[in-house]
């Protein structure tokens, strides 16, 4: 591991608001201090953790500090960001080894003495510095068949009871930061599983559609419970809940999406009582 010392002795005096992406340049305040950062620098050919000392002010988040680093010491530092409000899902990274949004990680949660390590997401191919290639997720998104409109109902005439869509709406809070995909050990620790496993975000999408009161997939011959298991790798999930732990929107991915989806798969494949009940009473809708 690198102990490179790219530290600029003049660090911590960044003052150019424009250069920092807006609002991160500051005038020194009484409570400002200099934090120790280790940031991964490199690309697909290699890289290392480099040490920096950067000024921190009250109320700042890790992304502010990364921006100040960019403005004052490492102008070519690559970082992906957009809204700075925890809603775009762009600034996902690993901070002290934990997948988090940089814009939602307050500096006040760290002690002033500790060294804060920032690395790119470690489940995806790195492009440069803190930027990774998350195209795996878009590939998996395309593999999930979309909502199937109910036959005979025009687009403007969909009517649903709120109580029927509450469950799906929880999943719609997803900002696609892919922290759950990053932390899921099925693909994080086993690259070879990426072909077979969609990951928690897209299994949640399958669950959302399967719970949708108007989705007509079953009527069109598409059994989402079956495809969840056969095509999206539901069985790989061993429900260790890391996806839920890292979700910045606090979606209960495991309890409300993945486990119910597993139970639905059990309904159709492993429970003859439910199968028989469905045959006799045509329940389940």
């Amino acid at each position: 591991m690198s102990t490179g010392t790219d530290t600029d002795p003049g660090a911590g005096t960044g003052t150019s608001s424009a250069a920092t992406g807006g609002g991160t340049g500051t005038s020194a305040s009484a409570s400002a201090y200099e934090a120790k950062f280790r940031v991964w620098r490199g690309d697909a050919d290699g890289g290392e953790l480099k040490d920096f000392a950067v000024e921190v002010n009250d109320g700042e988040v890790v992304l502010d500090i990364i921006h100040r680093l960019q403005a004052t010491q490492a102008a070519d530092l690559a970082v992906r960001w957009n809204c700075k409000a925890g809603k775009c899902g762009s600034c996902s990274a690993e901070i002290n080894g934990r997948p988090r949004l940089m814009c939602m990680t307050r500096m006040s949660v760290f002690s002033r003495e500790e060294t804060i390590t920032v690395t790119p997401l470690r489940a995806f191919p790195v492009i440069r510095d803190l930027v990774t290639d998350v195209s795996f997720n878009y590939t998996k998104a395309r593999e999930v068949p979309s909502f199937v409109p109910p036959p005979g109902v025009a687009a403007g005439e969909y009517r649903m009871q709120q109580v029927d869509v509450d469950r799906s709406q929880e999943f719609r809070k997803c900002i696609e930061c892919f922290l759950c995909q990053d932390t899921c050990h099925v693909v994080r620790d086993h690259e070879e599983n990426k072909a077979a496993f969609a990951g928690p975000r897209f299994l949640m999408r399958v669950a959302e559609l399967d719970m949708h009161p108007l989705d007509a997939a079953a009527e069109s011959g598409l059994d989402r419970k079956k495809t969840a298991q056969d095509e999206h790798g539901l069985g790989y999930c061993n429900i260790t809940k890391c996806c839920t732990e890292v979700c910045p929107e606090h979606i209960k991915i495991t309890d409300n999406a993945l486990i119910p989806l597993k139970e639905r798969a059990v309904d159709r494949k492993y429970d003859p009582l439910v199968w028989l009940g469905n045959k006799i009473r045509r329940r389940g809708e």
């Binding site: 591991m1 991964w40 490199g42 697909a44 290699g46 890289g47 290392e48 953790l49 690993e94 002290n96 080894g97 934990r98 500790e114 390590t117 690395t119 790119p120 470690r122 489940a123 995806f124 191919p125 790195v126 990774t132 690259e191």
Partner: peptide
């Protein structure tokens, strides 16, 4: 293809 980081985790 991943970022070249030797330790299996960086959690503190």
């Amino acid at each position: 293809s991943r970022a070249a980081i030797a330790p299996r985790h960086l959690r503190t």
